[in-house]
Amino acid sequence: MFDRRADLKLIRRCKLGEEAAFQEVLTRYRAAIYNLCWRMTRNDEDARDLAQEVFIKVFTLLDRYDEQYAFSSWLFRIATNHCIDHLRRQRLRMLSLERDGGSDDEEAEMQIPADGPQPDVVMQRREALEKLEEVIADLPPHYRVITLLRHDQQLSYEEIAETLQLPLGTVKARIHRARNMIQQILAARKYEI
């Protein structure tokens, strides 16, 4: 999906301290990283802060980037971990406010309220997309991120495996599972897309 060789050339220029090279990397990836962060949080300010922090981290730690992997994999890995950490911290804050922690199981985060809007309403496409965004946001974070990497960023299974440092089989199983969850939630809320 992303041009691996061109990225490597750019990163080498960055490592020499060339300002234009950093600008170019940013231009190449800002939309992808910002949108990933936005869909993970569904909040403008959080998305902006998270995405900026990701780039600041990456641009400061370029010497730790291992060139045998694609730069995009490293970048998405840092972005993914940063978003998931953020969600975890946010959840801990909520829990400590409620003083009534539920199960720690990630799956428990998934709520399937059946009282959505009126049943059997056939929605327009735009509306369908909004509902779908809402449903993705309700997936457990690890399923949310894999869905976004696959379908929004359109990474291949192999690229996702490299990004998340997971075996290929696990990647396939999670993508499959995530899609099943989406369909379950859609059905439970009587959303038709």
Partner: peptide, 10 residues
């Protein structure tokens, strides 16, 4: 549908 989610500008 998943592949046509609207893109947001930073």
């Amino acid at each position: 549908l998943l592949e046509s989610l609207p893109e947001r500008e930073p």
